[in-house]
């Protein structure tokens, strides 16, 4: 098990969020959408220019910009 930032995750990789290091409006928005520690996520894909990233969370699909994904730390299996 290793901790990486959400930006570094590859397509179809899944993991569990361990920390959200953003405050203010961004932190609020991230949490509003269900991205809180303990939540399982998996990467669905990236936009044609590799940014934003689309991910599956709690049965829905969300997208985040890479610079927003930087604030989210995820624990993933060593593969």
């Amino acid at each position: 098990m290793t901790k990486i930032s959400l930006r570094e995750m590859t397509k179809y990789q899944s993991g569990v969020i361990t920390a959200v290091k953003a405050g203010g409006e961004l932190g609020q928005r991230i949490r509003d959408m269900g991205l809180v520690p303990g939540t399982e996520i998996s990467i669905r894909g990236r936009a044609p220019l590799y940014d934003p990233v689309a991910l599956r969370v709690m049965g829905g699909t969300l997208s985040l910009r890479n610079n927003e994904a930087d604030y989210i730390e995820v624990e993933v299996d060593d593969a």
Partner: peptide
């Protein structure tokens, strides 16, 4: 910029 965090609904 306003946070992008966007839902992609089915």
């Amino acid at each position: 910029s306003t946070p992008f965090v966007l839902e992609l609904p089915p």
